[in-house]
Design a protein around this nucleic acid. Structure first.
Lengths: 204, 204
DNA sequence: CAGCTGCTAGTCAAACTTGACTAAGGCGCA
DNA sequence: TGCGCCTTAGTCAAGTTTGACTAGCAGCTG
């Protein structure tokens, strides 16, 4: 799974309705251009592709209010919302050692109920343990680990990083269970960026 | 930088001359199919592309000795060797937070002299420090870090992982400077896999 | 007020990645 | 000996990613 679809779906969902440049800006605000493949081309491509697949509904072209070419606005469909939550749950659960996907998922985790987020992260910890065991076992040849020579350093690095990932995940679970942040169904959700003239529909 | 070019160049170089399937097998032995985009298609594509760019010389098609379609054998050219070392040095030095590239580089680091490898890794540590500082600074808004809400967890994760990466790198530098492994110009190099009928030209 | 710069919004071709498919020979075995 | 299956070696089309490019409008500036 690449992080782009999750990021784009999440960004569009936060606005309710968004055009490409808005998504692009959102992701930049998130710093996503630094840690994911969220270049303009990828974003516009993802929007079009997902519109073709029925995950997004493309509204008629509207002339831009602030200059530049006209915009196409997108909105999540029913299956788009399903896909979004499926991707989000998977990203929180599995350890596929790609931090961009996890980063995106952390950013959107508050769309889930608190207890579910914590549970998915606990599953993530289990996946990490399994992966660690698989690496150490698979790469322990008959003649002892020395036989691998410097190649063993690669496994060493992966194990080290898996341990660090586990430590961080456990910390996050603790913070979540300790009441940090605002999750789904707990009042005013957190919204990163609002566009021109857009109102926070949840503002009191 | 994707890891594929480095991996393919390194694999071909280790054999002196290799065909696609051999590279594919090497990388599988390394476990590279697990941590990089080293699928068959990518490997054959990289071989062809680099041959077109003059980094590899494609030898005439030879009928396979063991069945299957005929093979094309590749060999590093002069500029291929230059490119290989350039990629290797860059991969060891920069912190681009992509572990596949670093993994590949660790696998080939012994192609460099010991002192150079250690120096490149020390530079890597400095890059890590800088990156860590940039993240913490950039993502500390006026209103204090709480203002970010759960988004701060993303930065937290990156910082945590940078710290883990630094710790591991320092450990590796220590081992290298302590005399571990066999580097360029120090006698019999380490070779992962030998193909059918291939002899280790360095064997005593 | 012509020209320059910068922002908004998006397109496009070229390169890369993916996963499924092809094709040829050898091996076991009933 | 004929059949299915495995391994070897590679191709291909569809999808994705990249980085450079286009184009409209606004504000300044000399």
């Amino acid at each position: 799974m690449s992080a782009i679809r999750l990021l784009v779906l999440g960004a569009v969902k936060q606005h309710g309705r968004a055009h490409g440049y808005q998504v692009r800006n959102d992701l930049e605000y998130w710093g996503a251009h630094e840690w994911s493949h969220a270049k303009p081309g990828s974003i516009y491509h993802a929007l079009k592709q997902m519109a073709k697949q029925g995950l997004l509904h493309a509204h008629e072209v509207a002339p831009s209010a602030v200059g530049g070419p006209p915009r196409v606005e997108y909105e999540l469909t029913g299956s788009g919302t399903e896909e979004y939550f499926a991707l989000l749950r998977e990203a929180l659960t599995t350890y596929d050692q790609k931090m961009d996907v996890l980063s995106a998922a952390i950013g959107f985790m508050v769309d889930l109920p608190r207890e579910e987020a914590a549970e998915l992260l606990r599953r993530r910890v289990r996946a990490l343990d399994e992966w660690r065991a698989a690496v150490t076992e698979y790469y322990t040849p008959e003649g002892g680990p020395e036989q691998l020579g410097h190649i063993g350093e690669i496994m060493h690095m992966w194990v080290h990083s898996a341990d660090a990932g586990k430590e961080w995940t456990l910390g996050l679970i603790e913070r979540i269970e300790g009441g940090a942040y605002v999750f789904a169904g707990e009042g005013d959700p957190f919204v990163g960026v609002l566009a021109e003239g857009e109102e926070n529909p949840y503002a009191s």
